[in-house]
């Protein structure tokens, strides 16, 4: 296996890991957003709660989510390794720094990623942990006609959490960091994979820019909506 570990610890191998895990996380962002849009159904949370119960009990989803936790961890650890190795490789700084030729996001991927990570901790501690491990003291149980088993009322918890302006603010900051992370990350992932093409790269860059604005914005609507509607 030595060729394989050599490959994975080479500069290009490490970037391959960043790129593939990053793209996986991007695909997760889409799925997660589509599911969350059910919060906007005007049904007192029925569709969302049944969906949330399904997502925490279905064995296939459970399997995929273990992959997701692993990839978040891998992306984060690899990202921090890159950051520290790259800092060491630069050594000292210039007296006059140049910020003209590079984007803010591309220079600060690790910082932006750390903001995203901090946000993930807040987010998962508040909802995911309570949904998965919280008892009836954390979440109420509700039943719906046509759906025999009682499910946890995550909808109520979401609505309650987003009445807190500080939490809403934390979400907005986290999502802003995500937007900038993606503005550089989306197209960068393709370059790392060796995909740079006169015909397709401008398209990838356009889709990347649109994605990094639209998706975080769509997520941001959720806390804002609940904050002003409750």
């Amino acid at each position: 296996m030595s060729w394989f570990s050599n490959f994975l610890t080479s500069s290009i191998g490490r970037k391959l890991i960043m790129s593939l895990t990053g793209l996986f996380l991007i695909s997760f962002l889409i799925i997660h957003l589509i599911g969350n849009l059910q919060l906007f159904y005007d049904d007192g949370g029925q569709a969302f709660n049944i969906y949330a119960a399904f997502m925490t009990s279905n064995p296939l989803i459970k399997f995929v989510s273990i992959g997701l936790y692993f990839f978040i961890l891998l992306h984060t650890v690899q990202g921090l390794i890159l950051w520290s190795k790259n800092k060491a490789a630069k050594g000292s700084k210039y007296a006059v720094s140049n910020t003209k030729t590079t984007s803010f996001a591309s220079r600060n991927m690790a910082l932006l990623g750390t903001f995203v990570l901090a946000f993930l901790f807040i987010h998962m501690g508040d909802f995911w942990f309570k949904m998965k491990f919280g008892g009836s003291d954390a979440l109420n149980m509700v039943t719906y006609p046509g759906h025999e088993t009682a499910v946890k009322d995550l909808y109520e918890k979401v609505a309650y959490s987003f009445s807190n302006p500080l939490l809403v603010l934390a979400y907005l900051v986290g999502l802003l960091a995500l937007a900038f992370h993606l503005m550089h990350g989306f197209q960068s992932a393709f370059q790392s994979l060796g995909i740079n093409h006169k015909k397709y790269t401008p398209l990838i860059q356009m889709i990347g820019l649109a994605f990094s604005i639209i998706v975080p914005l769509a997520y941001a609507i959720i806390p804002i909506f609940f904050f002003f509607n409750r």
Binding site: N6, S10, S11, K15, K85, T102, Q187, S188
Partner: peptide, 16 residues
């Protein structure tokens, strides 16, 4: 690439 890594050069973040 191996030699480049061994010399202690950093990794590409595609900053341009």
């Amino acid at each position: 690439v191996n030699q480049m890594d061994e010399e202690g050069f950093g990794m590409c973040s595609n900053t341009g």
